[in-house]
Simulated scan of single mutants.
Amino acid sequence: MTHPRHLSNPPVTEAVIDFVFDRSIDEDGVRSLAKAVRDVREGWELTEFGHVETTVNVTSGETYKQSRAFEGMRLSGDSGRIIIQYRCDRVTVSHVGSYSEWEALADDAMVAAVAFAESAGDAQIKRTGVRFVNVLSLKNSVTDLLRSPPKPIRDGWTLTDYWDRQVFKDSSQHSISVTLATVAQRPMAEEGPGQKVLLFDIDVAKDCSVELESEEMASALQDLRDVKNAVFFGSLQEAALEAYK
């Protein structure tokens, strides 16, 4: 990998590190773990989350079966900027709204993962992942931002809207998902079409078997970051990065 590049004002709206473990804990264990973590973090909020399954009669439209399944516990701190999610075999840590340092995100993720591993009886990591959601200002054409978007069929055409999702697996067995889409972004209180932006969502994951708090773990996370950066910087026009340097 090349030497990592750094933007002083990155267009990241959410940065995520995700760990999947080789052991799991039950629902009560997840609740107890999350409460213990919350109790040593002043001002943090704790909520339970899950999913609802609904069965509907297609003829009448009536709901005749509905069930709610536990999925995990969510901790939110620093005015919602940091989110920790504990599931039965998984820990996900997100920095939302603003992102400045990889080291801060990695440190928060490691602390949360160590707490889970201890609760699960020295569980080991079996899969790691990172996800970065970027939002870039779109002033004119998508071709101003992307290196290789679709080519206009005729001269004078402007590519103003775009959606694409691609999934790769490289020679090192990284699973890479890339989503690019133009969307209208505006504050909820405002009306009208809003400013158009390019959503650039990069998700990189890899199966592994490493110990927490080891050089190998730090290296595994840095490896995922390097792949993410290769996709990000390799996909954008250099001029598109000027506003974020």
Score class of each variant (00 low, 15 high):
R186C: 05
D207W: 05
T160S: 10
T92E: 00
V167Y: 02
N134R: 06
R131K: 09
H95V: 12
C208K: 03
D203L: 00
P149G: 04
R186S: 11
P193L: 08
R154I: 05
I153N: 08
R87V: 00
D170M: 08
A189D: 13
V142R: 03
V96A: 04
T182V: 05
V133M: 07
T143E: 15
N140T: 10
V135F: 07
R90V: 03
W157A: 13
V167Q: 14
S98Q: 12
C88Q: 13
M188W: 09
D207F: 11
T158D: 10
Q85N: 14
L180D: 01
E118W: 02
L159N: 03
L105K: 06
D107V: 10
D203V: 00
L146N: 02
V197N: 05
I83M: 06
N134G: 02
F168H: 14
H174Q: 08
D170R: 08
D161V: 03
V178A: 06
T128V: 12
D164T: 07
S171C: 02
K196Y: 00
L146H: 02
G156H: 03
V135H: 10
S119Q: 15
T160F: 06
L180T: 11
S94K: 09
P193W: 00
P150C: 06
E101F: 09
A181G: 13
G97Y: 07
T158V: 15
D108W: 01
L138E: 03
T158R: 09
E118H: 11
G80W: 06
Y99D: 01
R87L: 10
G80K: 07
R81W: 00
P193H: 03
C208D: 03
Q173K: 15
S137Q: 15
G156D: 00
R154Y: 10
D108S: 12
I153R: 11
P193Q: 11
S119L: 06
K139Q: 14
S79A: 12
A112C: 07
F200M: 05
R90I: 01
P193G: 06
D144G: 04
R154D: 09
A115T: 02
M188E: 15
S100T: 15
D89P: 03
H95A: 12
W157T: 09
V114D: 12
H95L: 12
D144W: 02
M188Q: 14
K139H: 12
A106T: 01
D203T: 01
I83L: 13
V183K: 10
R127I: 07
A109R: 00
I125S: 05
R165S: 12
R90S: 11
A109D: 04
R154M: 12
P187H: 07
G121S: 08
A117T: 05
F132Q: 09
A112D: 01
